[in-house]
Nucleic acid binder design. Structure first.
Lengths: 138, 138
DNA sequence: GTTAGTGCAAATGATTTGCAAACAG
DNA sequence: CTGTTTGCAAATCATTTGCACTAAC
């Protein structure tokens, strides 16, 4: 899911845990839930509280530094975005890898569909699920 | 969200509570969470346990009789579908009304984008959020 | 020094599950 | 009858919050 959010001035302190979290996100392939990220940090011997993971991911998502989407069971999952611009995702259901995709088509479709029904469009979400090449081979 | 699901033969007994739930869904505009539906039933003096509401909505969603999607906070919300075919939704963020929309464009886009990245597409989700006409006027 | 950031423990809230009683076919 | 379905209470589980404490700037 990707919702457009205007750039907001944000003040955040450079703390060890914030660094650990962003670093872990860098190295992660695909999406991670707060719980999973916390587990990863534990394995890396980074001492970061679960609460902090939640709060940090939340703030990163607000500023648009990471993408927030939902697993089918509703659990929130996050991913570091390479681009700050609006985009959607293609996610492998098997290994979790994801690819960012931008498309004029979708944007246009959303605008049109909304107007066609007298709605003022505010945002939209769109993700594609599938099996990636390497997972398909095995 | 809408995931394509093949019709599956289902055996379900005709119980008072199941009837009450489907009936409530008929009359509802837009999406309802299990909790909300349960509240509605209480007001209507229909005696249905919360557990049953959860279990019934879950089974209705599996058979495709209702659509399951998620609020931004991850809560599951359900809606009776008028068509059994694959479609997406346009939801009013203010009053919750929703409109079902089908679009070849989206389907084509999903297929193309997946193939372009060597993915075998399995499903996709896409919803548009906005403000409906009547809410915009107030 | 101030103030934001941290983390533990406790609180919350949606959803699930165990299990015995009620009910449909 | 016999297998489902129900519903209560208890259990789960992700996420949030209160609060005292520590670290940034």
């Amino acid at each position: 899911m990707t919702r457009q959010s205007p750039e907001r001035p944000v003040k955040s302190r450079a703390t060890r845990q914030r660094a650990a979290i962003t670093k872990a996100l860098e190295h992660a392939h695909g999406f991670l839930s707060a719980q999973e990220l916390h587990a990863v940090l534990k394995q890396t011997n980074e001492r970061v509280g679960l609460t902090t993971v939640y709060r940090t991911l939340q703030s990163l998502a607000e500023t648009g530094e990471v993408d927030l989407l939902r697993r089918s069971d509703g659990e929130a999952i996050y991913r570091r975005c390479s681009t700050s611009s609006h985009h959607h995702h293609l996610v492998c259901e098997s290994c979790g890898v994801s690819v960012e995709i931008a498309s004029q088509e979708i944007e246009r479709w959303a605008q049109l569909a909304a107007h066609r029904h007298d709605f003022t469009p505010t945002s939209h979400s769109a993700e594609i699920y599938g099996i990636c090449k390497s997972c398909a081979q095995t």
